[in-house]
Protein backbone atom coordinates (compact mmCIF):
# COMPACT_ATOMS: atom_id res chain seq x y z
CA UNK A 1 0.00 0.00 0.00
CA UNK A 2 1.43 3.36 -0.97
CA UNK A 3 1.56 6.36 1.30
CA UNK A 4 -1.02 8.23 -0.79
CA UNK A 5 -3.49 5.42 -0.27
CA UNK A 6 -2.87 5.56 3.47
CA UNK A 7 -3.57 9.27 3.53
CA UNK A 8 -6.74 8.86 1.45
CA UNK A 9 -8.00 6.10 3.73
CA UNK A 10 -7.15 8.01 6.89
CA UNK A 11 -8.89 11.06 5.47
CA UNK A 12 -12.00 9.06 4.69
CA UNK A 13 -12.05 7.55 8.15
CA UNK A 14 -11.59 10.97 9.73
CA UNK A 15 -14.35 12.49 7.63
CA UNK A 16 -16.71 9.68 8.60
CA UNK A 17 -15.87 10.14 12.26
CA UNK A 18 -16.33 13.89 12.10
CA UNK A 19 -19.62 13.60 10.23
CA UNK A 20 -20.93 11.17 12.79
CA UNK A 21 -19.63 13.06 15.77
CA UNK A 22 -20.91 16.52 15.08
CA UNK A 23 -24.38 17.81 14.68
CA UNK A 24 -24.16 21.49 13.96
CA UNK A 25 -23.94 21.66 10.22
CA UNK A 26 -26.64 23.86 8.59
CA UNK A 27 -29.99 22.14 8.37
CA UNK A 28 -29.01 19.72 11.07
CA UNK A 29 -30.46 18.92 14.45
CA UNK A 30 -29.01 21.08 17.20
CA UNK A 31 -29.69 21.05 20.88
CA UNK A 32 -28.77 23.50 23.58
CA UNK A 33 -29.27 23.53 27.32
CA UNK A 34 -30.53 26.59 29.17
CA UNK A 35 -29.76 26.34 32.88
CA UNK A 36 -32.12 28.72 34.60
CA UNK A 37 -33.51 29.53 38.01
CA UNK A 38 -36.71 28.33 39.55
CA UNK A 39 -39.62 30.53 38.47
CA UNK A 40 -38.70 30.92 34.80
CA UNK A 41 -40.29 27.67 33.68
CA UNK A 42 -43.31 29.29 32.07
CA UNK A 43 -41.33 32.18 30.59
CA UNK A 44 -38.85 29.94 28.80
CA UNK A 45 -41.45 27.37 27.79
CA UNK A 46 -43.11 30.13 25.76
CA UNK A 47 -39.92 31.87 24.68
CA UNK A 48 -38.26 28.67 23.51
CA UNK A 49 -41.19 27.82 21.26
CA UNK A 50 -40.92 31.25 19.65
CA UNK A 51 -37.16 31.07 19.23
CA UNK A 52 -37.16 27.55 17.81
CA UNK A 53 -39.56 28.73 15.11
CA UNK A 54 -37.46 31.83 14.48
CA UNK A 55 -34.24 29.82 14.24
CA UNK A 56 -35.78 27.29 11.88
CA UNK A 57 -36.85 30.08 9.56
CA UNK A 58 -33.49 31.78 9.80
CA UNK A 59 -31.09 28.85 9.53
CA UNK A 60 -33.09 25.78 8.57
CA UNK A 61 -31.77 24.00 11.65
CA UNK A 62 -34.05 22.00 13.88
CA UNK A 63 -33.35 23.25 17.36
CA UNK A 64 -34.16 21.49 20.60
CA UNK A 65 -33.83 23.52 23.78
CA UNK A 66 -33.52 21.65 27.02
CA UNK A 67 -34.31 23.47 30.25
CA UNK A 68 -32.96 22.93 33.72
CA UNK A 69 -34.52 24.79 36.64
CA UNK A 70 -33.61 25.05 40.29
CA UNK A 71 -32.37 27.44 42.92
CA UNK A 72 -30.06 29.91 41.18
CA UNK A 73 -27.05 29.28 43.42
CA UNK A 74 -27.53 25.56 43.14
CA UNK A 75 -27.76 25.79 39.36
CA UNK A 76 -24.55 27.84 39.19
CA UNK A 77 -22.80 25.19 41.28
CA UNK A 78 -24.03 22.49 38.91
CA UNK A 79 -22.60 24.34 35.90
CA UNK A 80 -19.28 24.82 37.68
CA UNK A 81 -19.31 21.11 38.47
CA UNK A 82 -19.81 20.15 34.83
CA UNK A 83 -23.45 20.53 33.83
CA UNK A 84 -23.04 21.41 30.15
CA UNK A 85 -25.07 24.62 29.89
CA UNK A 86 -24.84 26.46 26.59
CA UNK A 87 -26.56 29.43 28.19
CA UNK A 88 -27.37 30.38 31.76
CA UNK A 89 -30.32 32.57 32.69
CA UNK A 90 -29.99 32.95 36.44
CA UNK A 91 -31.51 35.02 39.19
CA UNK A 92 -28.58 37.28 39.90
CA UNK A 93 -25.25 38.36 38.50
CA UNK A 94 -23.24 36.92 41.35
CA UNK A 95 -24.14 33.37 40.32
CA UNK A 96 -22.85 33.95 36.78
CA UNK A 97 -19.78 35.67 38.23
CA UNK A 98 -19.16 32.45 40.17
CA UNK A 99 -19.35 30.43 36.94
CA UNK A 100 -16.84 32.84 35.43
CA UNK A 101 -14.46 32.88 38.39
CA UNK A 102 -14.67 29.34 39.75
CA UNK A 103 -15.52 27.48 36.56
CA UNK A 104 -13.59 29.76 34.16
CA UNK A 105 -16.25 29.07 31.59
CA UNK A 106 -16.86 32.64 30.43
CA UNK A 107 -14.94 35.93 30.68
CA UNK A 108 -15.21 38.21 33.70
CA UNK A 109 -16.78 41.03 31.69
CA UNK A 110 -19.69 38.89 30.51
CA UNK A 111 -22.20 41.40 31.83
CA UNK A 112 -21.08 44.02 29.31
CA UNK A 113 -21.89 41.84 26.32
CA UNK A 114 -25.63 42.52 26.29
CA UNK A 115 -27.74 45.63 27.02
CA UNK A 116 -28.96 46.45 30.53
CA UNK A 117 -26.05 44.61 32.14
CA UNK A 118 -27.17 41.46 30.36
CA UNK A 119 -30.53 41.52 32.16
CA UNK A 120 -33.18 41.47 29.42
CA UNK A 121 -36.03 41.77 31.91
CA UNK A 122 -36.40 42.86 35.52
CA UNK A 123 -38.61 42.09 38.45
CA UNK A 124 -38.96 42.95 42.09
CA UNK A 125 -39.98 41.45 45.40
CA UNK A 126 -43.57 41.52 46.66
CA UNK A 127 -45.74 39.67 49.18
CA UNK A 128 -48.34 37.08 48.37
CA UNK A 129 -50.96 36.68 51.09
CA UNK A 130 -54.12 34.66 51.44
CA UNK A 131 -57.37 36.23 50.21
CA UNK A 132 -58.62 38.93 52.53
CA UNK A 133 -55.14 39.34 54.00
CA UNK A 134 -56.24 37.83 57.34
CA UNK A 135 -53.06 38.93 59.16
CA UNK A 136 -53.26 42.48 57.81
CA UNK A 137 -49.82 42.46 56.19
CA UNK A 138 -49.08 45.72 54.42
CA UNK A 139 -45.35 46.27 54.65
CA UNK A 140 -42.08 44.74 55.84
CA UNK A 141 -42.76 45.78 59.44
CA UNK A 142 -45.72 43.47 59.56
CA UNK A 143 -43.54 40.46 58.80
CA UNK A 144 -41.52 40.70 61.99
CA UNK A 145 -44.53 40.69 64.29
CA UNK A 146 -44.87 37.65 66.54
CA UNK A 147 -47.17 34.97 65.20
CA UNK A 148 -46.61 35.75 61.53
CA UNK A 149 -45.53 32.75 59.53
CA UNK A 150 -43.35 33.66 56.53
CA UNK A 151 -42.40 31.50 53.59
CA UNK A 152 -39.18 32.35 51.76
CA UNK A 153 -36.54 30.08 50.26
CA UNK A 154 -33.00 29.55 51.48
CA UNK A 155 -30.63 32.38 50.47
CA UNK A 156 -27.78 29.87 50.36
CA UNK A 157 -29.32 28.10 47.38
CA UNK A 158 -31.91 30.47 45.93
CA UNK A 159 -31.25 33.69 44.07
CA UNK A 160 -34.80 34.85 44.72
CA UNK A 161 -34.28 34.34 48.43
CA UNK A 162 -31.22 36.59 48.33
CA UNK A 163 -33.26 39.30 46.63
CA UNK A 164 -35.93 38.85 49.34
CA UNK A 165 -33.37 39.14 52.09
CA UNK A 166 -31.70 42.20 50.61
CA UNK A 167 -35.02 43.94 49.98
CA UNK A 168 -35.90 43.47 53.66
CA UNK A 169 -32.45 44.68 54.69
CA UNK A 170 -32.77 47.77 52.49
CA UNK A 171 -36.12 48.55 54.07
CA UNK A 172 -34.70 48.14 57.59
CA UNK A 173 -31.75 50.38 56.79
CA UNK A 174 -34.04 53.05 55.44
CA UNK A 175 -36.31 52.84 58.45
CA UNK A 176 -33.52 52.90 61.02
CA UNK A 177 -31.30 55.56 59.54
CA UNK A 178 -28.82 53.12 57.95
CA UNK A 179 -28.03 51.43 61.25
CA UNK A 180 -26.59 48.03 60.36
CA UNK A 181 -27.28 46.64 63.82
CA UNK A 182 -30.96 47.52 63.58
CA UNK A 183 -31.15 45.97 60.15
CA UNK A 184 -29.53 42.80 61.47
CA UNK A 185 -32.01 42.71 64.34
CA UNK A 186 -34.88 43.24 61.90
CA UNK A 187 -33.76 40.35 59.69
CA UNK A 188 -33.23 38.19 62.77
CA UNK A 189 -36.86 38.72 63.79
CA UNK A 190 -38.03 38.14 60.24
CA UNK A 191 -36.25 34.78 59.89
CA UNK A 192 -37.52 33.72 63.31
CA UNK A 193 -40.91 33.71 61.64
CA UNK A 194 -39.76 31.43 58.80
CA UNK A 195 -40.69 27.83 59.64
CA UNK A 196 -39.30 26.11 56.55
CA UNK A 197 -36.68 26.99 53.94
CA UNK A 198 -37.13 25.64 50.43
CA UNK A 199 -34.13 25.44 48.12
CA UNK A 200 -35.75 27.52 45.38
CA UNK A 201 -38.46 30.06 44.72
CA UNK A 202 -40.77 27.58 43.01
CA UNK A 203 -40.54 25.25 45.98
CA UNK A 204 -41.43 28.13 48.30
CA UNK A 205 -44.46 28.90 46.16
CA UNK A 206 -45.50 25.26 46.43
CA UNK A 207 -45.10 25.44 50.20
CA UNK A 208 -47.31 28.51 50.48
CA UNK A 209 -49.86 27.86 47.74
CA UNK A 210 -50.28 24.12 47.61
CA UNK A 211 -49.21 22.97 51.07
CA UNK A 212 -51.06 25.94 52.60
CA UNK A 213 -48.25 26.80 54.98
CA UNK A 214 -47.65 30.33 56.24
CA UNK A 215 -49.38 33.68 56.21
CA UNK A 216 -47.20 35.35 53.61
CA UNK A 217 -44.89 34.36 50.80
CA UNK A 218 -42.02 36.74 50.02
CA UNK A 219 -41.85 36.28 46.31
CA UNK A 220 -40.65 37.36 42.93
CA UNK A 221 -43.29 39.68 41.51
CA UNK A 222 -43.72 37.47 38.44
CA UNK A 223 -44.09 34.38 40.59
CA UNK A 224 -46.77 36.05 42.73
CA UNK A 225 -48.78 37.09 39.69
CA UNK A 226 -48.38 33.65 38.19
CA UNK A 227 -49.79 32.06 41.37
CA UNK A 228 -52.81 34.33 41.14
CA UNK A 229 -53.21 33.56 37.45
CA UNK A 230 -53.06 29.86 38.15
CA UNK A 231 -55.12 29.64 41.32
CA UNK A 232 -57.39 32.64 40.88
CA UNK A 233 -57.85 35.92 42.69
CA UNK A 234 -60.29 34.23 45.04
CA UNK A 235 -57.45 32.62 46.94
CA UNK A 236 -54.54 35.06 47.03
CA UNK A 237 -53.64 38.73 46.93
CA UNK A 238 -50.43 40.50 45.97
CA UNK A 239 -49.23 43.09 48.48
CA UNK A 240 -46.62 45.57 47.29
CA UNK A 241 -44.47 46.88 50.13
CA UNK A 242 -43.46 50.51 50.42
CA UNK A 243 -39.92 49.73 49.31
CA UNK A 244 -38.45 46.91 47.35
CA UNK A 245 -35.42 46.10 45.26
CA UNK A 246 -34.86 46.13 41.53
CA UNK A 247 -34.11 42.51 40.71
CA UNK A 248 -32.23 42.06 37.44
CA UNK A 249 -31.91 38.42 36.45
CA UNK A 250 -29.01 38.22 33.97
CA UNK A 251 -28.29 35.92 31.05
CA UNK A 252 -25.04 34.77 29.44
CA UNK A 253 -23.60 32.37 26.93
CA UNK A 254 -21.31 29.86 28.64
CA UNK A 255 -18.52 30.38 26.13
CA UNK A 256 -16.38 27.32 26.76
CA UNK A 257 -19.27 24.91 26.68
CA UNK A 258 -20.87 26.49 23.63
CA UNK A 259 -17.54 26.54 21.83
CA UNK A 260 -16.85 22.91 22.64
CA UNK A 261 -20.32 21.89 21.50
CA UNK A 262 -20.29 24.12 18.43
CA UNK A 263 -23.36 26.03 19.56
CA UNK A 264 -21.92 29.52 19.99
CA UNK A 265 -23.92 31.08 17.18
CA UNK A 266 -27.28 29.71 18.20
CA UNK A 267 -26.65 30.37 21.90
CA UNK A 268 -25.81 34.01 21.23
CA UNK A 269 -28.81 34.39 18.94
CA UNK A 270 -31.01 32.84 21.64
CA UNK A 271 -30.07 35.48 24.17
CA UNK A 272 -30.21 38.30 21.61
CA UNK A 273 -33.76 37.24 20.84
CA UNK A 274 -34.77 38.00 24.42
CA UNK A 275 -34.21 41.67 23.57
CA UNK A 276 -36.38 41.66 20.46
CA UNK A 277 -39.93 42.95 20.63
CA UNK A 278 -41.25 39.41 20.57
CA UNK A 279 -38.91 38.37 23.38
CA UNK A 280 -39.85 41.42 25.43
CA UNK A 281 -43.54 40.84 24.84
CA UNK A 282 -43.20 37.25 26.08
CA UNK A 283 -41.39 38.51 29.19
CA UNK A 284 -44.20 40.98 29.89
CA UNK A 285 -46.84 38.33 29.35
CA UNK A 286 -45.10 36.25 31.99
CA UNK A 287 -45.15 39.13 34.49
CA UNK A 288 -41.52 40.19 34.11
CA UNK A 289 -40.86 43.90 33.70
CA UNK A 290 -39.73 44.35 30.07
CA UNK A 291 -36.86 46.65 29.13
CA UNK A 292 -38.15 47.87 25.78
CA UNK A 293 -40.29 50.98 25.96
CA UNK A 294 -42.99 49.48 23.81
CA UNK A 295 -43.41 46.33 25.88
CA UNK A 296 -42.97 48.23 29.15
CA UNK A 297 -45.82 50.56 28.16
CA UNK A 298 -47.99 47.64 27.10
CA UNK A 299 -47.64 45.84 30.42
CA UNK A 300 -47.30 48.84 32.74
CA UNK A 301 -50.84 48.33 34.04
CA UNK A 302 -50.11 45.01 35.66
CA UNK A 303 -47.33 46.34 37.91
CA UNK A 304 -47.74 48.61 40.94
CA UNK A 305 -45.47 51.61 41.29
CA UNK A 306 -43.05 50.97 44.10
CA UNK A 307 -39.85 52.63 45.26
CA UNK A 308 -37.07 50.37 44.05
CA UNK A 309 -33.51 50.46 45.34
CA UNK A 310 -30.66 48.80 43.50
CA UNK A 311 -28.07 46.35 44.66
CA UNK A 312 -25.30 48.75 43.72
CA UNK A 313 -26.58 51.79 45.61
CA UNK A 314 -27.44 50.01 48.87
CA UNK A 315 -25.05 47.09 49.00
CA UNK A 316 -22.14 48.16 46.78
CA UNK A 317 -22.76 45.42 44.23
CA UNK A 318 -23.30 41.70 44.34
CA UNK A 319 -19.80 40.69 45.29
CA UNK A 320 -19.88 42.74 48.44
CA UNK A 321 -23.44 41.76 49.27
CA UNK A 322 -22.61 38.09 48.82
CA UNK A 323 -19.53 38.27 50.99
CA UNK A 324 -21.22 40.25 53.76
CA UNK A 325 -24.49 38.40 53.92
CA UNK A 326 -24.46 35.00 52.25
CA UNK A 327 -20.96 33.52 52.33
CA UNK A 328 -20.27 31.03 55.09
CA UNK A 329 -20.16 32.91 58.37
CA UNK A 330 -21.94 35.93 56.87
CA UNK A 331 -24.85 37.81 58.33
CA UNK A 332 -27.42 35.23 57.28
CA UNK A 333 -25.53 32.45 59.08
CA UNK A 334 -25.38 34.65 62.15
CA UNK A 335 -29.06 35.48 62.30
CA UNK A 336 -30.64 32.25 61.13
CA UNK A 337 -30.49 29.39 63.59
CA UNK A 338 -32.69 26.56 62.35
Amino acid sequence: MKIRQHITMAGALFALAVAAGTGTAPGKDINILNVSYDPTRELYAEFNTAFIKHWKEKSGDTLTIKQSHGGSGKQARAVIDGLEADVVTLALAYDIDAISEKGRLLPGDWQKRLPHNSAPYASTIVFLVRKGNPKGIKDWDDLVKPGISIVTPNPKTSGGARWNYLAAWAYALQKHGNEEAKAREFLGKLFKNVPVLDTGARGATTTFVQREIGDVLISWENEAFLAIKEFGQAKFEVITPSLSILAEPPVAVVDKVAKRRGTEEVAKAYLDYLYTEEGQDIAGRNFYRPRSEKAAAKYAGQFTNVKLVTIDEVFGGWKKAQKTHFDDGGTFDQIFKP
Partner: peptide, 15 residues
Protein backbone atom coordinates in the same frame (compact mmCIF):
# COMPACT_ATOMS: atom_id res chain seq x y z
CA UNK B 1 -49.83 24.50 60.53
CA UNK B 2 -47.28 22.66 62.64
CA UNK B 3 -48.23 19.36 61.08
CA UNK B 4 -48.10 20.85 57.60
CA UNK B 5 -44.67 22.32 58.32
CA UNK B 6 -43.37 19.00 59.60
CA UNK B 7 -44.73 17.22 56.55
CA UNK B 8 -43.19 19.80 54.23
CA UNK B 9 -39.84 19.50 55.98
CA UNK B 10 -40.00 15.75 55.51
CA UNK B 11 -40.82 16.31 51.85
CA UNK B 12 -37.87 18.67 51.44
CA UNK B 13 -35.54 16.26 53.23
CA UNK B 14 -36.64 13.56 50.84
CA UNK B 15 -36.06 15.86 47.85
Amino acid sequence: QKVRILERKQELDKD
